[in-house]
Nucleic acid binder design. Structure first.
Lengths: 132, 132
DNA sequence: GGGAGACATCGACGCGTGTCACTATTCGCG
DNA sequence: CGCGAATAGTGACACGCGTCGATGTCTCCC
């Protein structure tokens, strides 16, 4: 109970696969904000835009023209993504460049990752009940 | 299904990787509901519970005791997950069994997958995406 | 057939959140 | 050194959503 990963407050380091075991309330509450951050059309497009942009980074002035939203609104969404750990900020001159954090993507992949048969259950007499 | 890929209203069949190209407003609007469905602690736990339950399925009476929520609330969350295409319903006798739809999980994995480490794949049609 | 249990639906309430106009801050440039 | 541009913060408003109690529907069992 000490180190087995999954600090309940660090969804990036944690993110037990959903299928591995029943998620505890604390873990769920820790992970949900990251998903809430992604669960918005504008933020989804922002992520996609940053990912597909030159060198994988983009500043607000690059992103805003893609939307019909005010600049504070775009800034707000970027802050949400940043606070959720999905985007990294770097200020260069007058511009602020955003970049997707690979750990976050990895965490999401781990979360929804299928239960890979070869991955776990070495000695577990679990009978491998599922999908036999 | 035809294969042109990415019908804008079918996030399950669609789900272009976020990093592949900038997501269009319609696509983002189509995918967001599925993510919104998952972006809730209770629903996250419900998914996890169903996935880890015996035979990968569970009825409401199996799930409700794990929460301190009313039965209608649990039913509501299950409906949200069902409407989002994440859960399949099957009524057997008096009980209703829920099961996670693998296509949905696959769609989510596809969405967040393909994070370009080596930049782009030139014209490679083989994709070879999965970790093989 | 009637009663009991499992689950869904409905209507209502309160909080969270996406949006905007306005304002503040920070930096480069002349 | 002061002005303008890029970005973030603030307060307000409207809508969405999670929750509940009450009620409806269906199915099994005696």
């Amino acid at each position: 109970m000490s180190m087995p990963g999954c600090a309940p407050d660090d969804p990036l380091a944690c993110c037990t696969p959903l299928a591995r075991e029943p998620l505890g309330p604390e873990q769920a509450a820790a992970i949900a904000p990251m998903l809430k951050a992604v669960a918005d059309p504008v933020r989804l497009r922002l992520l996609s835009l940053v990912l597909s942009h030159q060198d994988g980074e983009a500043c607000v002035c690059d992103l805003q023209p893609a939307f019909e939203l005010s600049q504070p609104t775009i800034s707000h969404h970027l802050k949400v993504l940043h606070d959720a750990g999905l985007l990294a900020r770097e200020k260069r001159g007058v511009w602020v460049y955003y970049r997707v954090r690979p750990e976050a993507m990895q965490a999401l992949l781990t979360l929804f990752g299928a239960v890979p048969d070869p991955m776990v259950a070495p000695a577990a007499p679990l009978a491998a009940g599922a999908r036999a």
